[in-house]
């Protein structure tokens, strides 16, 4: 028997990921990201509800994700958007309509790929692995197809959400490891990217990463 609430949370995360491919406003992309993070944060709770009682680990994961990804990271990103005064993704390398279609193709690929994958144990939902893969790929697509550093960070974070979902596969076996991985990974990533963005901004007065390609001495 499938868990409808878990399905809805996973599909919501997937839809928000696809939607973020189609938006030109950086503020909207950040909003889609934190909504997605909220949906993903629900997943450990819903998985555990399905198998019986709720453990402390699930609550810790939930709370940490909520605080870090739903509140902390968007706050930080919005600030850097404000400081750099860049509101829209003006010239993406791949247009929004095309990236939507590419995104759909990648999701299809992920669904096909997920069925080939030998897993150590049965996942809590048959959608967990496909959605995790899809978010990974959508995140990658965002990173390679956008020219603004903030959108690329959002792409990285979407990817991170996918990795988080993937990690949940092992939540019963290695709960501490997952928690550690999730939190450390995210912390370091945002820290580094924040510094990078800030410095691009300080040094060059904008956050278009393509300007870095044309540096001359």
């Amino acid at each position: 028997m499938t868990n409808v609430a878990l399905d809805i949370a996973l599909i919501l995360a997937l839809l928000l990921g696809v939607t973020s491919l189609g938006t030109s406003r950086i503020g909207a992309a950040i909003r889609y990201f934190w909504m997605q993070a909220a949906a993903v944060a629900m997943v450990p709770l819903l998985i555990e509800t399905r198998s019986g009682g709720l453990s402390v680990h699930a609550w810790v994961l939930f709370a940490a994700t909520m605080v870090l990804k739903v509140w902390g990271v968007p706050y930080f990103l919005n600030r850097s958007v404000r400081e750099a005064s860049v509101r829209t993704e003006v010239e993406p390398l791949i247009g929004f309509g095309v990236s939507l279609m590419l995104g759909a193709g990648l999701v299809g690929l992920s669904f096909a790929l997920a069925r080939q994958l030998p897993l150590p144990q049965r996942p809590a939902s048959d959608l967990l692995i496909p959605v995790a893969f899809s978010l990974l790929m959508i995140g990658l697509l965002l990173i390679v197809s956008r020219s603004k550093a903030v959108t690329q960070v959002v792409g990285y974070l979407v990817m991170e959400n996918g990795i988080f979902l993937f990690g949940l596969l092992l939540i019963d076996v290695f709960p501490y490891l997952i928690e550690l991985g999730v939190l450390l990974d995210l912390f370091v990533a945002v820290f580094v990217m924040g510094i990078v963005i800030f410095h691009i901004n300080r040094a060059f007065d904008h956050i278009d990463s393509h300007q870095l390609d044309t540096l001359k001495d």
């Binding site: 696809v18 189609g22 939507l100 279609m101 759909a104 999701v107 299809g108 959608l127």
Partner: peptide, 17 residues
């Protein structure tokens, strides 16, 4: 296109089920 993507995702989910 977004509507088409919606339908494609729905199809992927149904396919897996």
């Amino acid at each position: 296109v977004a509507a088409g993507v919606f339908a494609a995702l729905a199809m992927a989910v149904i396919l897996i089920r």
